[in-house]
Amino acid sequence: MGMLSIFPAWSADSAPVLSVLTWSEYLDPEIVEAFQAKTGYQLKFTYFETDETRDDYLIATDGSGYDLIMMNGYTMQMYQQRGWLAQITPADVPNLKHIDPKWLPRGTAAEQLYGVPYFWGTLGIAYREDLVSKPITRWMDLFDPAPELHGRIVMIKHSRDLIGMALLARGHSVNSTDPAHLAEARDLLIQQRPYVKSYSYVSLSEDSSLVKGTVLAAQVYSGDALMLQEHNPHIRYVAPDEGTNLWIDFWAVAAKSQNKEAAFAFIDYINEPENAAQIAEFVHYATPNLAADKLLSDEHHADPVINPSSEILKRSEFYNVLPPRVTRKWNAVFAEVVN
């Protein structure tokens, strides 16, 4: 009840609204219900399909219009530089204390946070083991696809995920700044382009093209594959042999938000160990919340998709922010491939 006093008064017919910009299927609706019931705030979700759509939304409004924003580590750095994000202190979000510091952005103290780690995972390939003649194990299986995969591949419409994995497939780092490496990756992508059904992100619903079988293989984030598996047990996830990207998603609060307190409250709420554990079980991702992790089932812990082996982790990299003129080159290549 004490919490209520810090929020403005509200009435039933004009509930205050928290605007949330996030991936779809990335929260347990029960938790959302519970938060709404507890605080009287109504959560209004805007889902983005790719990182770029989210960027476009925010560029169009110069970072306003949303209270809570979901993003990955290096995006958070860009948004922060642009001044779009509000600082988060342990006082704002007491449950920060449960977060394993190793998931915080490199070189940042808990006092200078602009985002709270939500989940981490890998980027990999989800595919239909029943519809392909041999298991997919490598990025090269996607970039130089067998005829059965032609026109039945979905690649993520994101320059880092697309060009980065092409670099990996060619044996280079996802953060390579060598123009020659980029040229190799570009050629590989141009060569792959005729066989790609679309540059987007597969839906996670039961109507997903991967579930239906119109798409046989797609770049997906690890936990999403498990969600898809619930719709179709023939879907397999693989963190490819060449290595992959290791990512962390953060919840951030917009600098221009008018409801910062409620936004902090939401972040705090989902980091209550029981809640964080429930969401992790729901979305099949590994949580950086240590207290929650202890509550998770053995099954969850044992799942190699959720918790990749140390070997995979060794072969995986986080995305670093690239030098601007390198980014410019990446943009050109990405535009050439995707547009």
């Binding site: 770029e52 642009r82 943009n331």
Partner: peptide, 12 residues
Amino acid sequence: SESERYSLLQPS
């Protein structure tokens, strides 16, 4: 800022 320009704004 070149980094903002190219990382965030240019793709858009």
